[in-house]
């Protein structure tokens, strides 16, 4: 009984985080992006500086008609948003925010593999959407998504593998328990590679070629309306949370901080995650979209060699200090 209650409570907490944090990131994006462009952003919804803008958006999405194109593959089309969204919910379960047993949804032995594997599944949703929409823009978007995933999955994995090597474990809390501050400079290249590859996998600007709205409308999501479209957007923002959380846990030392390591560790995790989410928005505002060939070139000629070099460095240091 107690176990069941515990599990239910954890699931509930993760679910609430899953529903609220993406909204917080989305609202922050609205405001930060606006101010970085000399604007104010939403000001009316909810009264104080438009804090309820995304709730209003959600209500709007819910009211819209759910359209399935006549030529579309109905079932795949309708299933795609769920396939895109659910993996991120599962990944959130495995991210530890504090040092104690209770600060993680579910301790997994092969945490890194679980997280990366399930994140890769999320892209399947975009592919399904792209193909099933019976729309050439969607198909192009799907193709680009697939090409991008294939290109960036490798450096991401290699960068994560470097940390796993350093820690000698693939469990996420295990990595954090093994963390020392000097890992930060040691793994910095891996961290950058991981973060950039993660951005590309989420199709966030400047890596948003698969949804480049000025060329292919909205890529795989062109034909979607209403709640299903909202689910895709939610998946993107949940993906930001997951990516920032993972980068925090793998490279920035999660709950470790200059002070207050015990008790306030979760605060450090959240702070670092929030900071990274800000960087995600910052990058989006600052850089223009990469062209498809530049995108592939960046991955294969820069990120993959860098991550391999990081692994070599990790191996050398590991051998030297042991």
């Amino acid at each position: 009984m107690n176990d069941a209650l515990d599990v239910a409570l954890r699931l509930l907490v993760v679910f609430v985080v899953f529903l609220t944090f993406p909204l917080i990131v989305g609202q922050t994006e609205h405001k930060v992006m606006a101010h970085m462009q000399g604007r104010l952003g939403p000001m009316y919804a909810g009264g104080f500086h438009g804090w309820a803008q995304l709730i209003a958006d959600g209500v709007k999405f819910a009211q819209k008609e759910d359209v399935v194109p006549a030529g579309a593959d109905r079932r795949v089309f309708q299933l795609a948003p769920a396939v895109a969204l659910l993996p991120y919910l599962l990944v959130l379960l495995a991210i530890p925010i504090g040092p104690s047993e209770g600060a993680v949804g579910q301790v997994l032995d092969a945490g890194i593999f679980f997280v990366l594997a399930v994140m890769g599944v999320g892209v399947l949703g975009s592919l399904m959407a792209g193909w099933a929409s019976a729309n050439k823009f969607s198909l192009l978007g799907g193709l680009r998504t697939a090409a991008q995933l294939l290109a960036y999955e490798l450096p991401m994995l290699l960068a994560a593998a470097s940390v796993a090597m350093a820690a000698g474990t693939v469990s996420l809390p295990g990595i954090l328990h093994a963390f020392h501050w000097w890992w930060l400079p040691w793994q910095i290249v891996g961290a950058i590679v991981f973060f950039v590859a993660g951005l590309a996998e989420l199709q966030r600007p400047p890596f948003d070629m698969p949804v480049a709205d000025s060329e292919i409308i909205f890529g795989a999501y062109t034909e979607y309306t209403g709640l299903r479209f909202a689910l895709f957007l939610l998946a993107e923002y949940a993906g930001i949370i997951v990516l920032c959380g993972l980068t925090t846990v793998l490279f920035l030392g999660g709950w470790h901080g200059p002070w207050g390591a015990d008790g306030l560790g979760w605060l450090w995790t959240l702070l670092k995650t929030a900071l990274l989410a800000f960087v995600v928005i910052w990058l989006r505002v600052t850089y223009p979209r990469l062209r498809e060939d530049q995108l592939q070139k960046l991955s294969w000629t820069l990120l993959v060699p860098l991550s391999l070099a990081q692994i070599a460095l990790t191996g050398i240091v590991k051998v030297v200090i042991s």
């Binding site: 970085m36 104010l40 505002v285």
Partner: peptide, 21 residues
């Protein structure tokens, strides 16, 4: 160049926005 771009957006964020309500 990338860093310069980031600096530009950050500086704009710190400045007062020009929106008229």
């Amino acid at each position: 160049g990338l860093a310069k771009g980031l600096a530009v957006t950050l500086r704009t964020m710190m400045r007062k926005s020009v929106t008229e309500q």
